[in-house]
Design a protein around this nucleic acid. Structure first.
Lengths: 207, 207
DNA sequence: ATAATTACATACCATTTGGTATGTTGTAAA
DNA sequence: TTTACAACATACCAAATGGTATGTAATTAT
């Protein structure tokens, strides 16, 4: 019969271990890039061994794929899609969230860029499967924005003449472009300058 | 006395060798990233040996620095700055060049992105000197656009109320953002969608 | 013409890398 | 309680990596 664990915490837990490895990998890859990180460094960060690693992932590439599917996708959802739903006017939500997550980020965080965008730029040309999975997350993001904009139209906050998919593409591209650009110039003045142009564009969508 | 070379072409030429290595490195790094490329692969492409390589560059990093300083900077000048000067209205020049170099590029080239942006995203967080040198090239680009816009104001094509540096930052960011975004979605429709928004923004600068 | 130097070639090396083979022990079903 | 397997740990390996030491021939200065 099925028994949920009792006594002390289990010392061996497949999913927990997987999560810890993915977290360590995320941090390492975020700062050094996928190709700049070794499996040894990742497991060193977790305190585990190669046995644990290769029990979860058959190759380094598989770890990368899992990271995109299981971590990055969720990150986009949590940071850029779900919060927008809290706003009655999705345009205000998008603007508020950009200001919160990018505009108010410290400079050393800005220099690290966007985990998703970093991988897109590094890996798209290197590995086909990587490219596909990253593209799926981008699409997921675009779809999320698209849906939010459609809600804005139904809400009466956005002109119904606006082509929501085109607008969503612009919005996502601007997020990633901004992230990428601020890596070289992690300056609040630069953010404000770009932010202003972004808001102007979004204003043209308003009903 | 100084004699320019005669007879056959010199078999040994420091600058020529350096150029060949830099060209091979550029191609390799463009497709695999800096960290994804080995010195062996670069010299294999040139047909030279390690002796030649390390006579020019003391480390792999030094090659990267030289690539930014001696190749990427010139690429930006040739592709994105000089051509604009041919147009009386710089805004038209910027738009025409974007359409020419990105809009009319084949899909497999679009998937490779921008050599400069690729390196920015990959290396800024990895190596401080790399970040600095890349930042200098970005600044060089921004300065070039800034100068062009100022000429547009003097020309009477651009409103003199426009803050040219802010506009230049927006323009350069949009180029790199577009390049980066099209890596995941190398689709002409997507280009047109973004291109339209870009042109709309530039229209707000016109006198 | 000769010597000195520079531009490269060759051979080699310590370390790191992704990956494997094999052991050991916690855990759950029978 | 035993059995069986799953979740790891340990030890090891071939290949690739960045880099060096040293040799040699082309070029330049004397």
């Amino acid at each position: 019969m099925m028994r949920t664990m009792s006594k002390a915490t289990k010392t061996r837990d497949l999913q927990r271990t997987r999560g810890e490895i993915l977290n360590a990998a995320f941090a390492e890859i975020f700062t050094n890039g996928f190709q700049g990180v070794s499996i040894d460094k990742i497991i060193a960060r977790t305190g585990m061994t190669k046995g644990a690693f290769f029990h979860q992932f058959s190759t380094k590439m598989e770890l990368g794929y899992a990271l995109v599917d299981e971590v990055l996708r969720d990150l986009i959802k949590t940071r850029w899609i779900d919060p927008i739903a809290e706003f009655e006017n999705p345009l205000d939500g998008i603007i508020a969230q950009m200001n919160k997550l990018i505009g108010k980020a410290p400079n050393d965080l800005l220099r690290m860029g966007c985990p998703l965008n970093n991988l897109v730029q590094e890996m798209t040309n290197v590995d086909e499967t990587f490219a596909q999975k990253l593209s799926e997350v981008i699409d997921y993001w675009i779809d999320g924005v698209d849906t939010a904009l459609k809600r804005g139209i139904a809400n009466g906050h956005i002109k119904d003449s606006i082509k929501t998919r085109d607008a969503a593409i612009y919005i996502v591209m601007f997020h990633e472009g901004m992230y990428g650009f601020l890596k070289t110039k992690p300056d609040h003045k630069v953010f404000l300058s770009l932010f202003k142009a972004f808001k102007q564009q979004l204003d043209t969508y308003r009903a």
